[in-house]
Design a binder for these strands. Structure first.
Lengths: 171, 171
DNA sequence: AGTTTAAGTCAGCCTTGTTGACTTTCCAAG
DNA sequence: CTTGGAAAGTCAACAAGGCTGACTTAAACT
């Protein structure tokens, strides 16, 4: 079993968890290969629009939080304002995103998807949801909570905040 | 609960799995934020060497399968030979990777890590293993199998082959 | 009035992906 | 033995999407 560096950890009062380097390496590769699958479908759709993943991310989070500001998006995406601005500019020019000057604070720009932008968002997220739904079905109900629990722990604490903030769903 | 588009799926003979669009969106964001955390530690280390993630991936899979050929690496990584070649060249020039002409087929190059390359590999994978081990511990033993089951289903079938081939571990 | 903040812009750089064209080496089949 | 094709490598050009640094504009805050 080659567990010379095994980490033996007591579970929540029941089972014993063996974490050999080899098992951890399997987890690492699972993340690598799965993330590729996870992004493959949207990438194909985006290609037809001449967009990349950066556009997808912007569209996703504008859809999740309509009216969000550029600064807020910046902290979620963790890129520089120049990088994000390049992406947002093309989305606004192409009529997918609407950038409205703030009412209370006129320095801020509030971002919304146009109908055209919302249509692309639906196409992208439907492809991604389909893959995830199929994966959840195949893995079974118990696997889903485990999947989410591990991923949540894998995040940097700062990012976990954005994750937990992000919805009205449970947990 | 807003499950107007809920997919109600029977579990493995026991529980009922509600998959609302909102829950699936949570899964999508979990992947996004977790992958960022997952790559954050190696990225910091690589910066000191002037390397990027492409170098990390090459180093990882050469370490996993010593003596692998360039073509094999190509099919695992899913990039063009020109992209991979640029990365491999710098690793060979810097003395981290050894490229040996094949014995049976002299067209092939068999790739191995040098001691220097193995040292960087250990630093990178130790950082990544530590994060994954901590996540596994915090999530609990039951979560680990669910995590891996869902990720395995999320892969493209072609990539799943590389994943399953990849080790002597269980599953 | 002066400082800070939000946003946007311009210029330049790097990594990492792409295509296309081409050479060298070598195995294997005709 | 020759020729066809596979494996590897190379060169050039390009694009996306990161980055830094410097700077402007407008608005808000103190």
């Amino acid at each position: 079993m080659a567990d010379r560096t095994a980490a033996n950890v007591m579970g929540r009062g029941e089972s014993l968890l063996f974490l050999t380097d080899d098992q951890l390496r399997r987890g690492i590769e699972a993340m690598f290969f799965a993330y590729r699958g996870f992004t493959a479908d949207p990438d194909r759709i985006l290609q037809d629009y001449g967009y990349g993943r950066a556009h997808h991310r912007a569209i996703h989070f504008i859809n999740r939080s309509p009216g969000t500001t550029v600064n807020n998006l910046l902290s979620i995406l963790g890129v520089t304002k120049q990088s994000l601005n390049r992406v947002l500019r093309s989305l606004v020019e192409d009529g997918l995103v609407d950038s409205r000057v703030g009412i209370r604070d006129k320095r801020e720009r509030h971002l919304h998807l146009t109908e055209k932008g919302a249509a692309l968002e639906r196409a992208l997220s439907e492809a991604q949801r389909t893959r995830m739904r199929d994966a959840f079905r195949a893995a079974g109900p118990d696997a889903v909570s485990g999947f989410r629990a591990v991923l949540e722990q894998m995040m940097d604490p700062d990012m976990r905040r954005h994750y937990l903030d992000g919805g009205d769903g449970p947990r």
